[in-house]
């Protein structure tokens, strides 16, 4: 699991369009969510709810499929047969997660064809961390452990959200995560407690990835635009800063206990507030990379596009006159 719930263009109150919704239907919809019932595809829902969820689930799906690339690249070069098999199984899981999530997004009305087009034409976003390269095996291990760990924090929160199909997909996804997390942790520990060269390689990878990891949960709450409605509708379940703090709480001690360091002198937990303090990530750089100017944006999209185009003739050959598309039911 790779998804980060940082929706980067949340609406402001001025553009919610809620004033155009039927007030009675809207009240019923909100009452259903307030009493803890899930929303299902056949239900009435405000246009804004549909739009934001579509964007969020679609971004999550793209993150799974793009996120499998920097790890997938290491399958053939993973040290040893067992690690090759394990890396392959993990990457296959991630691609499977994308399938589940695309289907969940489709129940809201957007076709899979359109989502894939929007991805390869650069219109849709995916988790920004995958715009960075994995130059060594240790970089791949950092993704397996810490990016997955970050995503789990997000997804466990989102699995309690209000949209039935997304919850069902996340329940399945989370169930597969125990393996990913242990596998990633094992790989990192193996390197960190290995030879001096292995250890140095792991430390270098961690240093490279740490700034990106700190941006994984999206911009700081004080910079985020209005999320009140999305919280009330249980589209967004926890704030970016809450997720980031929880991640630091769970994983910084595990990083430190194997003698690795983190490249941020300010990083420390304030025991009085219970909050972690750290150097503010470079959000301008984050914005620049997410808008296309990162080290791997062009490669990720080009590889995805080549896969789509090179496989198109096979898909055409498999079609039968009876093939019929209907929006998935749930």
């Amino acid at each position: 699991m790779y998804g980060s719930a940082s929706t980067h263009d949340l609406p402001t109150t001025a553009t919610t369009g809620l004033e155009n919704e039927d007030p009675i239907l809207l009240a019923e919809f909100e009452a259903r969510i307030a009493r803890g019932e899930k929303i299902e595809p056949g239900d009435w829902m405000p246009a804004l709810y549909r739009k934001q969820l579509t964007r969020m689930i679609e971004q999550h799906a793209h993150s799974e499929i793009i996120g499998s690339l920097p790890e997938g690249t290491w399958i053939t070069r993973a040290p040893g047969f067992r690690r090759k098999m394990a890396q392959m199984a993990k990457v296959q899981d991630e691609v499977g997660h994308a399938q589940l999530l695309y289907s969940a997004a489709e129940t809201l009305g957007k076709t899979r064809e359109q989502m894939l087009i929007d991805l390869i034409n650069g219109k849709s976003k995916y988790s920004n961390v995958f715009n960075y390269p994995t130059p060594t095996w240790a970089d791949s291990n950092v993704i397996s452990w810490l990016i997955d760990a970050g995503a789990i924090v997000n997804q466990l929160a989102n699995a309690k959200g209000s949209y039935g199909p997304y919850c069902r997909a996340l329940d399945r996804i989370c169930a597969e995560e125990a393996f990913h997390l242990k596998y990633g942790h094992d790989a990192v520990v193996h390197m960190a407690t290995g030879t001096p060269i292995q250890r140095a390689m792991m430390q270098a990878a961690l240093n490279r990835w740490w700034p990106a990891i700190m941006t994984f949960f999206g911009p700081s709450d004080k910079m985020s635009v209005h999320t009140e409605i999305l919280m009330r509708w249980k589209v967004k379940m926890a704030s970016n800063d809450e997720c980031r703090n929880q991640f630091l709480d769970m994983y910084v001690p595990k990083i430190w206990e194997i003698g690795l360091t983190l490249p941020d002198e300010k990083l420390a937990k304030n025991e009085e507030t219970g909050r972690w303090e750290f150097t503010e990530p470079d959000w301008e750089d984050f914005k620049r990379v997410i808008n296309g100017d990162g080290p791997c944006n062009a490669e990720r999209i080009a590889v995805r596009r080549a896969a789509e185009e090179n496989g198109a003739w096979v898909r055409r050959a498999l079609l039968t006159p009876k093939t019929q598309y209907v929006r998935p039911l749930a």
Partner: peptide, 8 residues
Amino acid sequence: TALDQFGT
């Protein structure tokens, strides 16, 4: 094209 991603 339509049905590039098949039916369901």
